[in-house]
Amino acid sequence: GLEHMADEEKLPPGWEKRMERSSGRVYYFNHITNASQWERPSG
């Protein structure tokens, strides 16, 4: 619901949600550090 939507907005600075086109899996990418990970970043 709306709570989940708001929660997605609160990623740490630099992080954004991305989708891997080949598999459709969602991952997280940090455009500041060029880091990427499957787990939702905390902090």
Rank of each mutant, 00 (worst) to 15 (best):
G1I: 12
G1R: 12
G1Q: 13
G1A: 13
G1W: 11
G1D: 12
G1C: 13
G1E: 11
G1N: 11
G1P: 10
G1F: 11
G1H: 13
L2T: 11
L2P: 12
L2W: 15
L2Q: 13
L2D: 13
L2E: 12
E3S: 11
E3T: 11
E3D: 10
E3A: 11
E3G: 12
E3K: 07
E3M: 07
H4I: 14
H4K: 07
H4N: 10
H4D: 13
H4T: 12
H4A: 13
H4F: 10
H4M: 12
M5V: 12
M5D: 13
M5R: 06
M5A: 14
M5Q: 11
M5Y: 11
M5T: 11
M5E: 13
M5H: 12
M5F: 11
M5G: 13
A6D: 13
A6L: 13
A6R: 11
A6F: 12
A6C: 15
A6G: 11
A6P: 14
A6W: 11
D7T: 10
D7A: 10
D7V: 12
D7Y: 10
D7N: 09
D7K: 08
D7Q: 10
D7E: 11
D7R: 04
E8L: 08
E8R: 06
E8S: 10
E8T: 10
E8H: 09
E8K: 09
E8C: 12
E8P: 08
E8A: 09
E9R: 06
E9A: 10
E9N: 08
E9K: 08
E9Q: 08
E9V: 07
E9G: 09
E9I: 07
K10G: 12
K10Y: 11
K10R: 11
K10D: 13
K10P: 14
K10C: 13
K10N: 13
K10F: 10
L11E: 15
L11V: 02
P12S: 03
P12H: 02
P12Q: 02
P12L: 03
P12T: 02
P12R: 01
P12D: 02
P12Y: 02
P12G: 04
P12N: 01
P12W: 02
P12F: 02
P13N: 08
P13W: 13
P13I: 08
P13Y: 13
P13D: 10
P13L: 09
P13T: 09
P13E: 09
G14I: 02
G14Q: 05
G14A: 05
G14S: 04
G14F: 09
G14H: 09
G14R: 02
G14M: 05
G14N: 08
W15T: 00
W15V: 00
W15G: 00
W15A: 00
W15D: 00
W15E: 00
W15K: 00
W15R: 00
W15F: 02
W15H: 00
W15N: 00
E16P: 00
E16R: 03
E16H: 05
E16G: 03
E16T: 04
E16V: 05
E16Y: 03
E16K: 03
E16A: 03
E16F: 03
K17Y: 04
K17M: 07
K17P: 04
K17T: 07
K17R: 09
K17F: 04
K17I: 09
K17L: 08
R18F: 07
R18S: 03
R18D: 02
R18N: 03
R18A: 04
R18T: 04
R18L: 11
R18V: 08
R18E: 03
M19W: 15
M19Q: 10
M19F: 15
M19G: 03
M19L: 15
M19R: 14
M19H: 14
M19E: 12
E20P: 02
E20A: 06
E20L: 09
E20M: 09
E20F: 08
E20R: 03
E20N: 06
E20K: 04
E20C: 15
E20T: 06
E20H: 15
E20Y: 09
E20G: 04
R21Y: 15
R21H: 15
R21K: 15
R21L: 15
R21I: 15
R21Q: 15
R21G: 15
R21N: 15
S22R: 12
S22D: 15
S22H: 15
S22L: 15
S22M: 06
S22N: 15
S23Q: 04
S23V: 03
S23E: 05
S23H: 04
S23K: 03
S23I: 02
G24Y: 03
G24R: 05
G24C: 14
G24N: 08
G24M: 06
G24V: 02
G24K: 06
G24E: 05
G24W: 03
G24H: 06
G24T: 03
R25K: 09
R25A: 05
R25T: 05
R25Y: 05
R25F: 04
R25V: 05
R25S: 04
R25E: 05
R25D: 04
R25Q: 07
R25N: 05
R25M: 07
R25G: 02
V26E: 08
V26N: 05
V26Y: 15
V26W: 15
V26R: 03
V26F: 14
V26I: 13
V26P: 08
V26T: 08
V26A: 07
V26M: 09
Y27Q: 02
Y27M: 03
Y27P: 00
Y27D: 01
Y27S: 01
Y27H: 01
Y27E: 02
Y27T: 01
Y27K: 01
Y27L: 02
Y27C: 06
Y27N: 00
Y27A: 01
Y27R: 00
Y27G: 01
Y28D: 00
Y28S: 00
Y28V: 00
Y28Q: 00
Y28N: 00
Y28G: 00
Y28F: 07
F29M: 03
F29K: 03
F29I: 04
F29E: 01
F29S: 01
F29H: 08
F29Q: 02
F29W: 07
F29P: 00
F29L: 03
N30F: 02
N30D: 03
N30Y: 04
N30T: 01
N30H: 04
N30A: 01
N30E: 02
N30R: 01
H31V: 14
H31A: 10
H31L: 14
H31M: 09
H31I: 14
H31K: 13
H31W: 13
H31S: 11
H31D: 04
H31Q: 09
I32H: 07
I32F: 11
I32E: 09
I32N: 08
I32V: 10
I32M: 09
I32Q: 09
T33A: 04
T33G: 02
T33P: 00
T33R: 04
T33Q: 04
T33S: 06
N34L: 13
N34A: 07
N34E: 07
N34G: 14
N34T: 06
N34M: 12
N34Q: 14
N34D: 05
A35E: 13
A35K: 14
A35H: 14
A35R: 14
A35N: 08
A35T: 15
A35Q: 14
A35L: 13
A35F: 10
A35P: 01
A35S: 11
S36Q: 11
S36L: 11
S36T: 14
S36W: 14
S36G: 02
S36H: 07
S36M: 14
S36R: 15
S36Y: 09
S36I: 15
S36D: 02
S36E: 10
Q37H: 03
Q37V: 06
Q37S: 06
Q37E: 03
Q37K: 04
Q37D: 02
Q37I: 05
Q37A: 04
W38G: 03
W38P: 05
W38A: 05
W38E: 06
W38D: 06
W38S: 06
W38R: 05
W38V: 06
W38L: 07
W38F: 10
W38H: 05
W38N: 05
E39W: 09
E39H: 12
E39T: 09
E39S: 07
E39I: 07
E39F: 06
E39G: 06
E39L: 07
E39P: 06
R40V: 07
R40M: 07
R40I: 06
R40T: 06
R40Y: 08
R40P: 08
R40D: 04
R40F: 11
R40K: 11
P41D: 01
P41E: 00
P41Q: 00
P41F: 01
P41N: 01
P41M: 01
P41I: 01
P41K: 00
P41A: 00
P41Y: 02
P41R: 00
P41T: 01
S42R: 09
S42D: 11
S42V: 12
S42L: 10
S42W: 09
S42C: 06
S42F: 10
S42I: 11
S42H: 10
S42M: 10
G43Y: 14
G43F: 14
G43K: 08
G43V: 13
G43H: 13
G43L: 14
G43C: 09
G43S: 12
G43N: 10
